[in-house]
Amino acid sequence: MSISVGDAISSFKIPILMGVMVIFGFGIGYLINYTFFSDRSPVQPINFSHKIHVTDNNIQCMHCHAYVDKTPSAGVPSVKKCMGCHKAIATDKPEIIKLTEYWDKQEPIPWIKVHDVPDFVYFTHKRHIKAGIECQTCHGPIETMARVTRVSSLKMPWCVDCHTEKQVENGRDCVTCHK
């Protein structure tokens, strides 16, 4: 009596295939999560709309993000800055009432970060703005967004692709961006 090699394989086949299916499914599941439940467009504490401010009322980006061409960070406007206009404008709207509440309590608004790079990355808005990059290149059609949605991956290949394409000086050197 002898056990043929084929029989041996076929007796292991189903468990192996099951394993393959688990791995395959894992990938699919991760992808589903990544595509449909990503953190690209979180609900913010105040339903701030870039569309109303930029498209409808024609306010320039730099009016609020004042530091964008001067410092590494763009500078999210202070609550005082918001209240500078909203003391008088649209004070009856529910979102503005929320804003006024923060101001009355002298508390900052806990915005949820949409665009975030890891701590080991050095990113400076100033250099990009001074190089003539439009806000929309990275932030997408931000002026039309009722809620901020991240359109770029902000992953390293995405950065490097652009640096390569634009032939940035030392743009592919690691320490240009890694601190």
Partner: peptide, 29 residues
Amino acid sequence: AGSVGTGAGVLYGEVTKQTVELLIPQVIP
């Protein structure tokens, strides 16, 4: 097996998501 894998994948994606970081503005600059 495939379904178990998918479930685990979704869960894994959820767990490994970056923790929500807040962008705290100044009240008065």
